[in-house]
Every structure is written in C-alpha cells, then in structure tokens.
Amino acid sequence: MVFTDEQLAIKSQQGDKQAFEELIKRYQKPVFTICYRYLGNSQDALDAVQETFIRIYNKLALFDANNTFRPWLYKITVNIAKDFIKKRKPWEELDFSLKSELGDPQANIELTQVQEQIKKALLKLPEKYRMAVILRHIKELEYQEIANVLNLPLNTVKTHVRRGRDILRIQLKEVEL
C-alpha cells in the first residue's frame, strides 16, 4: 500500500520510524537538489538537507493533516538554505564561487557544456532571484506554490523569476560570445 506524504507525516507524528524514513527517501533528492543549486557546494548542501529533516522531525507535531506536506517541507528547506548563506563569511563566499568555477568534485555528475554554464550562471544570480528560479524552473513549482514557500506576494515572485531568467539568459549569451 502506498501512503501519501501527509499520511506518512501523520504516522511519523505518532512515532512511526519507518514512515519518517520513507519521507526522507521520497524527498532527499529534491531537497538536496534545491540546496545544492542554491548553495553551490555539496558539503553545505548535505548539512542543509540533514538540518532540514531534523527540523521537520522536531516540528512534526505542528503539521496539520489538512495541509499538504510538500510546500511545508520546501518552506523549511528554503529557510535553512537561506540561513546557511547568512552564516557565510565574505571570504567563504569567494571560496565557494571559486569552487563552483572549478567544479565540485563531489557532485560527480556529467553535465553538458550548456548545463555546466547554467549551473555557474545560476550561482552568480542574486540570492532572491536564484531561489525563485530554482523553484520555478528546476523544481517546476507553480507560482502560487512558490509564493507560499517564499512567503512573498505572487507578483513579487513573478518579477523575481522573470528578472532571474533574464539575467541568466544574458550571462549565457555573454559566455557564448
């Protein structure tokens, strides 16, 4: 029998260890992808994923069965990823941008030349645009869902996504030239 995310969350609330493990299995990849694309290195992304699921577990008692699990999970993911950026020192930021230029050895995935350029360009985007673009075009969330996750008005989210992808387009064009 396949349980919905919400059913698994309720079972986890009641202390079902396997249900919570199933939730991690379902969402570890999307959560890691969001964190990695936003933070730019796998070590920080791994720490952020770990912290996300621990926070989810600690806040399970607050999860309402009438709500959907995914936006709630992404909201916590986004908050944690933003905290990681805030905690970074200026010299660490420089270090990470250098690492992303050189390629992260732990993200052992073959990318096409265009994808490699997109990955780098994404990390150069201003943070507020970066997260909006990740949620819209990598996680393919609806605008309203992104607005809920980021706690922003719908029109602001649209503006962030549009500006973000415009900057990306310009950056990619510059690389081509």
Partner: peptide, 19 residues
C-alpha cells in the same frame, strides 16, 4: 535555451549514507 537547460539540470542524489 536557458529554460530548457534549467529544466534538464539533473536531480542530485545525496547518497545512501544520509538517511
């Protein structure tokens, strides 16, 4: 082209040890 590239960025696996 930009959007296609973004959509096709692979989903990343944090590895089995994480769970």
């Amino acid at each position: 082209q930009t959007i296609y590239g973004l959509n096709n960025l692979p989903e990343l696996d944090p590895g089995e040890a994480l769970i």
